[in-house]
Design a protein around this nucleic acid. Structure first.
Lengths: 115, 115
DNA sequence: AAAGAATATTCACGTCAAGGAATATTCTTC
DNA sequence: GAAGAATATTCCTTGACGTGAATATTCTTT
């Protein structure tokens, strides 16, 4: 989950992933379309592969890379956990603040007693 | 979108965000629960704030931080764009490979003619 | 097996960002 | 207004990472 995020947290890698959304592509094509030098593309793809974001399939001398679904499923699930944030529920802040102020006053009372 | 990703692509920052899912918290509490030194927590929160992932509300000397919905909505939307990956559709790879091989053969034919 | 195409790997270098320690700010209370 | 609590900021050092250039691998074709 965290590995997925940091893999995506790099401009060119993100571009590659977004390009691959259009379909599987060999390294050369990615390199051309994104105007990146081949070695860097290979490196990024290597990283993406290690994290499971992409898979490879050799075709002659080329290697066709494609997105793999798992990481995206997990990412989706992770974000879903925050659904409560933008649905229904108002800002909790006011409530919490009131709570904090209440506790504060209580402590104040206690302190006074102690003394 | 990319800023959001790179903000989350840091272990402690991710932990902070996940902790804040439980509700708004002042810096000190975050610092305690995650066993991180206060200055680093402040720094991370600063970053998260700049990217819009969190908001602050001062309460006396404390600053209560809370998650903001926007970035999560966008993240969700982004991932949704990859929905096709894990739904319906089989691996495209075979198709693409067949395609590549076909083109290859065509080129081979052309080459032969040219020569 | 030699040549060429497509891709991978290595090495050196520069940058950027996280952590630690010390200090500055802000706000409350007495 | 001085002291203390909660948080922010600065400065420094170090490690990780992306890039570029050169080279190595892999695979096909003749």
């Amino acid at each position: 989950m965290f590995e997925t995020l940091s893999a995506l947290a790099e401009p060119n890698r993100l571009r590659i992933v977004e390009l691959l959304r259009a379909g599987p592509q060999p390294v050369g094509e990615i390199s051309e379309r994104l105007r990146l030098r081949q070695p860097q593309v290979s490196k990024h793809l290597q990283l993406l592969k290690e994290v499971g974001l992409v898979g490879v399939e050799p075709v002659a001398q080329q290697r066709v890379y494609q997105l793999r679904p798992e990481p995206f499923r997990k990412l989706h699930a992770w974000v879903e956990a925050y659904r409560g944030l933008w649905e229904a529920r108002f800002d909790d802040l006011d409530v919490v603040i009131e709570d904090l102020k209440r506790k504060e006053k209580e402590n104040a009372r206690h302190d006074r007693r102690k003394k």
